[in-house]
Nucleic acid binder design. Structure first.
Lengths: 221, 221
DNA sequence: GTATCGACTATACTATACGATTAGCCAAGG
DNA sequence: CCTTGGCTAATCGTATAGTATAGTCGATAC
């Protein structure tokens, strides 16, 4: 009778989301060690689902594990790492944007448009409000992920999402400087326009410019 | 108990290796469901480390999980997936080969040379012996991984290893057709030669030719 | 500095319990 | 007869608690 979508979600999955959220938002600082016993008491679940969640979180790069020594939140990024991450993004993201531009649908464009608008709204706040930063990276993430999904190649998407957590570390890194949210907004618009026009080459170029721009704004501080 | 061998390595890590090995070698067939209780009895460990190992194995793509329904070995690849995987590899691997060619060291070249020789030896067997197939994909894997590591960008390497398990599924797919091991051998040599010469452009091109070749040999069957 | 001690913690096993899935069976309806 | 639907029981994933073992790490003593 009641809809079947109300199937209970395993606690391990819930803990995955909770912890991911906390790492993404910076609620648990870089390098902080994660005591499973303490987490168990704090989140009021047993250790079993926590261990499972942490094991799955390892591949996001937001948490690191050392055998017999436990888990810890990934440390702050170095400048070299930021540059290496940019290189990796410069290889993947223009390609993803290019493919997405070739496979646009009305629904996709509508969704992307939504994330774009949300990004603009949050970008205006990210420079002033601390709470706005949360909304900012969330919509930034959604924008890039939506494009990656539309590229239609699950393997490329998989390779990109392997970087997803790292890109979030990149964003958190920028939190402690001045955010470039206001400058990123027009770049997102340019990407959207190129994709909406179905111009694959322009989409790739706009994405390249955006990734370079974001990195240089950060490193230039 | 009476077992005196002080295992320095956590059982969860050992199980990860054991299961990975079994998935890689095809010992557990595509689509086969993995009963944790049965695995526990079969491997003579409790369910705790098994759950942890399986959770970590999920990101390799060799095993899939459905909430409340358990784990299963990833199903056979479709032809479309093979092509999509090739696209992803064509984006990443030439770049990795290019970067590796720019950062060669004596030690790296010696290691790569070893994997190359081993590949040649095993390629000769892979067409005749079934046991040779195991050695074949193992040295193929090592060859590509060694190059990816030498590229010196941990994020690119991360993106590539996110595909690692999928590439293994690709190899297993080929097991049931004729293997192109003999044809792949000279391609590996060409890649090695270009890298050893420090010719980044040629290395990228050789890698591109190899990945295309391997895929087309498989799809052409 | 090195060695040892002890607290803390990761790891592992066992037993137990609950709930969801699934397969098999049976009955009603075509 | 075959299909459809629902009930039941077995199976299995998930979760908890308690306990045991062993490795890590800081502190203390030599």
């Amino acid at each position: 009778m009641s809809d079947r979508t109300t199937t209970k979600r395993p606690i391990a999955d819930q803990m995955y989301d909770v912890l991911l959220q906390q790492f993404m938002s910076g609620a648990r600082g870089p390098g902080q060690s994660l005591n499973i016993g303490a987490l168990s008491r704090e989140l009021d679940v047993s250790q079993t689902p926590l261990r499972e969640a942490l094991a799955r979180l390892e591949h996001t790069g937001l948490v690191e594990r050392e055998a017999l020594r436990g888990y810890r939140v990934a440390p702050m990024m170095t400048r070299v790492e930021v540059q290496q991450l940019m290189e990796a993004r410069l290889l993947l993201e223009p390609k993803l944007a290019e493919q997405a531009a070739l496979r646009t649908t009305d629904e996709f464009l509508a969704t992307l448009r939504e994330t774009l608008d949300e990004f603009h709204r949050s970008a205006a706040l990210a420079d002033v409000e601390t709470e706005g930063f949360d909304m900012y990276w969330r919509s930034d993430d959604r924008f890039h992920m939506t494009i990656a999904a539309q590229a239609g190649n699950p393997f490329l998407q998989m390779a990109y999402s392997a970087l997803g957590g790292q890109i979030q570390r990149f964003r958190l890194f920028s939190k402690f400087g001045r955010t470039g949210a206001r400058l990123a907004a027009p770049e997102h618009t340019a990407i959207y326009d190129a994709i909406a026009a179905g111009d694959a080459t322009a989409a790739a170029e706009a994405m390249r410019a955006h990734v370079s721009g974001a990195t240089e704004r950060l490193l230039g501080e």
